[in-house]
Design a protein around this nucleic acid. Structure first.
Lengths: 209, 209, 209, 209
DNA sequence: AATGAATGAGGTTTCATTCAT
DNA sequence: GATGAATGAAACCTCATTCAT
């Protein structure tokens, strides 16, 4: 890998998107996601986010306008990530496996944080709207992925059951979070969780005979 | 001169304006419980708690030393309330009914708040210890109330399953909270919730044949 | 000694001056003197004064109108005590002995506190006027007690020297105070102090040959 | 582009408005020293210190962590200044002249404040330790500067006498302070004070024949 | 007369944000 | 583009004082 060329500045000026700038944005988003997810919106200090990212605090306002803006960006990111992940699972077993990885999988460093983010509120309406939409969409997707037909999903009863399944996932993510650390739940891996989770998902979403 | 009539406390409690210290304490605890549960620790302002209770802000420090102290008192209260509620349920059906009321029951004004409180952290170690103990104890009690023997409970596998059941309860309480309001989950009553919840609890805690 | 008669309340009403009230006043003055002298005006909390005296805080306002009023009363008391003490000393040796007792004497519990009070300011003009008058008067009295004629005292040079002698006394009282505790000065008794003090007083106030 | 000229700091120091952190720190220290020395620790409001320095209040916490931290910094500064000043005086006359300037000298704006600071306590142990050490060290230095041998100084008797001499200095500084203003002491200049002070120092510290 | 509950002003500190460099 | 100094609003808390009992 080469060093950055001496003209880096000029190059950036031409492309319009500085590589450093984009990278800084990404670094900030990443630390913010973790902080917001683990500590909640108001307990998180922008200085800590910047320190985690190794950049100057003022850049948060430059790139995201405000703490609130950064939070919204995190939520939007989570929405996109979660929307992309599940489409493929066709059987109920696939779904269970995917969800289990979501809360306890390897490199869960970022996976379960996306879930936690959906539980954090800043009080701002725009942000809350994103949250609510994502939650609702994600629950519906779970029903679909469980093999239920699209018509089924539009029924309030199935919606309710899917949302309860989602509740289980979120509750688990929360109780596993560092500040809580409820044992044995907190340190159980994918293997230990998959069984009970299949029981729950099946009980809630499997088509009745 | 006669003593104050026995109903004096009740009378004061309704008017909300009194010089009864015990009553003031109770009013503060009540407003604090709601605020902390709904908004989280750091997003809650002591001024708002005092305003809700209709008393002066300084009384929070007088009776609870600090915002932290008030939070701890709320947590201790929740622990006591939750510890007292379940002992009686002997069958799995009884447990399901009790838990359903806990998250959606009539006069749930205070019931589900107790659950939410267990998810709020102030960062203080003492408070977090209370939280953790209560969560663990509450999960164990669920297993016992589900008809599992005490020996069973001491196994890590059953503990894990009980904690997952607890996760479901907590997740539901969170998604029903005002700031989230996920429909149809948010406005489904006891009748609608009892069925799905029975499925989950049974799947997790019922003795296998 | 007898118990208080059952009519104590009536008796108080007739005399107009309740024995308890006068006593309470005295208790408050005593604790206030110590606190104000040792910690200064603004670092002293009225609650601590009341606690030391074993009475309710509100009585400070009842008997002295305000914290400021209580402070003024302490100063007035100090002025009267200090004004009464010296008249008798006719020789320079008598003066030295009296002053030494003032800063380090037995039962100095209250003696040196009177001196310290003269160094504490509340920022209020009335109180500061009392302080200033007392300091000036006390310094003049030292010159008189040192055997200097009244005409001498009215000269600014002798006044200055007397005030410097007073400075020495006050400085010693301050450095001996509990919060400072400079050794060996803090724990030297009357015997150890008398010699050096005589040297200072003589050097400053003895008539020149 | 050239470096900032060497006088930049001085220029900023005079205008008082700059973005130079070191200068701001210095401005705060200077105003704090004056306020703490004249009014005492608890009567001093951080807002006033900041206003005197012409900077925002929050900078006190930025640069000194807390009001306490600022006070400690003032004390440390006083210790260093006082430790540096005396070494040169070899004769008793030199000492007297130095001390006189200390309490009444020209540009005494800052000199006598250092002395007063040593009498102010915040109740914090760290700060009190600095105070006590400085007082003790300063008294010992006076004895040395008076021409007494180092072995002499280690005797408790000489220590005591030096501390009494220090008491005189401190007492004078206090009585000259603005809030007291005892005349003629308060407005006597170097010329008027030098004589009496020489008498006191000589009487206390001159080697006996 | 005395108590303790209640109040409001004001103090220190934190924190997101803006401004120069 | 990036830095760190500076700002102002607002939060928690303390404390002297007043009010009912």
């Amino acid at each position: 890998m080469m060093h950055a060329p001496p003209h880096a500045v000029d190059a950036d000026a031409t492309t319009g998107k500085s590589r450093d700038a984009a990278n800084t944005r990404r670094l900030l988003l990443s630390s913010a996601r973790r902080r917001f997810a683990q500590d909640g919106y108001s307990a998180t200090r922008v200085r800590d986010i910047a320190a985690d990212a190794g950049v100057n605090v003022a850049l948060i306002n430059r790139y995201f306008s405000s703490k609130e803006g950064l939070f919204e960006a995190c939520l939007a990111h989570a929405r996109d990530e979660l929307g992309r992940s599940d489409g493929s699972s066709a059987t109920l077993d696939d779904l269970v496996e995917a969800l289990t990885r979501q809360v306890a999988g390897p490199a869960n460093g970022d996976r379960s944080l996306q879930l936690l983010l959906l539980l954090r509120s800043s009080g701002d309406e725009t942000a809350d709207a994103i949250r609510l939409n994502t939650l609702r969409y994600f629950a519906d997707q779970m029903a679909v992925a469980a093999g239920r037909s699209v018509e089924d999903v539009s029924s309030d009863d199935l919606r309710l059951r899917a949302q309860i399944a989602l509740s289980t996932m979120l509750g688990i993510a929360l109780l596993r979070a560092s500040s809580t650390g409820l044992e044995p739940l907190a340190s159980t891996g994918v293997d230990g969780l998959e069984g009970p989770l299949r029981d729950v998902i099946t009980a809630l979403l499997a088509p009745r005979l």
